[in-house]
Each structure stands twice: as C-alpha cells, then as structure tokens.
Amino acid sequence: MCKSLHKTSNKFDFFKQLFPGVILLLSFTGCGGYSDKRGLAEGDTLLDALGREVRLVRKPGRVMALAPSMTEMLFFVCDTGQIAAVTQNCDYPAAARRKPIVNNYPMDFEALLRVRPDLVFAVEGITPLADARRMEELGIPVYYQQYHTVEDIFTGIETVGRLTGNAARAVHLTDSLRRVKKEIQTQTAGLQKPSVLAITWQDPIYVYGRNTVFTDKLAIAGGRNAVDTVFEAQYPALTREYVLKINPDIIIGGGFGKMDSTFFRQYPELRRINAYRNRRIYDLTDDLMARPGPRVVESILELKEVIHGKK
C-alpha cells in the first residue's frame, strides 16, 4: 500500500478519492476571540499554538505557509486559488511549483509584501519569532503551529481548515487519515517493537530525537525510537559511544550499500551494532520523514513496511 501511495502522482487525490461524499462536520474547538459560527473577520484575535495573539487585518481569504509541510497542508484543505505563494523549498504537490515564491531564509519581506497574504502560517522552530514580528509590523499576521505527535498534525490540518474557511473538508480528510492510522495501529499492536535510529546527518551524527513526531510515528508503525533519552535538542548530535550503547535494531538514513561505504566507513566502530550485523539499514523518502504534513500516514506506512515487512 505504501509504495502504491508513493507512486501516486497526487497523493491528495488518493485520499480525496478514498473518501468521497464530504460530510460537513463543523467541529469548531474554539480559537478564542471570534465567533466560530460567523467565521473569521477583520479585527478578530486568534491564539496560536505558541500562545501568541494573532490579530487579523482581513478575513483570511489568501494565505501562505513558511514551511513545506504547512504548504502541503494548505494544498490539502484549501482551494489552490487561496494559496498566495510558497517558499523556495515547497515542491509538493506539483501545483506548488507554479505559485509565486517568497524566500523564507532569509525572509524576503519585499516579496511577501508583493503577494500580501491575509494570513501567514508558520511552524515553530522554522520561522524565527523576530521574522514574525516584522511581518506583523508590515500588517501581515502570522499564525504558528507546533507538532509533537501525529494527532497534533491532524489537529493542525483542522485548524488550517477552520482558519481558511475549509473546516468541513479538513475534518473529512483528517477523519480518513485517523482511520488509516487506527488500522495500522491494529495491525502492529501485537508485534515486537524493534528499536529504530533515524539519522538525519552523518558528520556529526544527528538523529531524530525522542521529542519529535518521529517517536509517535514509530510507535504507530510498530517500532520504538532507539534514542532512549529526551535531549534538549529535538535533533540531537550523538556520540559513537551513545549509538553503541543503544544498539539499534534498525537504522534509517540510507541504503545498506551507501551507508556501508560512507557512515560505517567513517565510523567502523559502529559495525558492531545489531542493525549493521543484520543488515537492517534502510533508505526512506526524505520528505515523508521530515515533513509533519498530511502525508504523515504515508510516512507511517513506509516505516511499518521497513520494520515489519509488507503485510
């Protein structure tokens, strides 16, 4: 299922086809400061995930996101015409490549003013608060989201839907994602949970830490994060000794051949770990791993496939 999902040219179409017949379920959970029933309007004040007050200058008809994952969310729930621009790193779905580009690093305020979205979505840790303050001084409100679990992503999608006037579509789509997630959980419930280390960079060794969405994705896919300590950094740098100590059963970061000639050539001491001895070293789709967006379920399926095989 995972691979078929992978090769689908537009994955959003997959979900949209899977669950036709949109049932309008307006489940406003309350953002504060405005009446959900009347929708958003100029002057409304929202509270974002960082607890910041976001005052709308206009009703958010045209929006943009400053992270590829959130751009995917926008395309997932909004009409394409609502999306004012994307960043230089946003390459999915294909329609994103046809949008005007606003650089997010360094932030191109002039380009942002040119497209002038009514609301900008940002992800904590990617867009500095100083940039957000500058945008707000320029009259463009910024709404932050943050994700620690898969459920946070689903909630984030629903929030995007609610703020852009697409609440029903968002809820319908997240319902479908939750169903697939639950199905995967049922399949992996009784299985052994091997430890998995996901490497994001080899020199120094950076990995997905415990306090990332990856840990939750792994738990759903029937594995566990080999990193057994919560470090201050979400993506901590590890020593070879630490990797030896946690002795992961599976490593994600590249195919066996490539990792053997790079990572394990550089750190031959790590050839003692279980993952190397049992050749359980895999390459996964980078964007699926890294982007906490609507393709998170695909990412979980991909993880499940390398952990427990195709079933």
Partner: peptide
Amino acid sequence: DTEGKLKTIIFWILGSFERAQ
C-alpha cells in the same frame, strides 16, 4: 541547502574530537 551541512561546517569551524580513532 540542509541544516546538516550547516552543522558540519559549524563543527568543523569550531572543532570536535568525536571522530577520533
């Protein structure tokens, strides 16, 4: 183009003994 490259450069500029063999 990646955060990883940036961190490698930082570690190289500021030094580290983690690679020691």
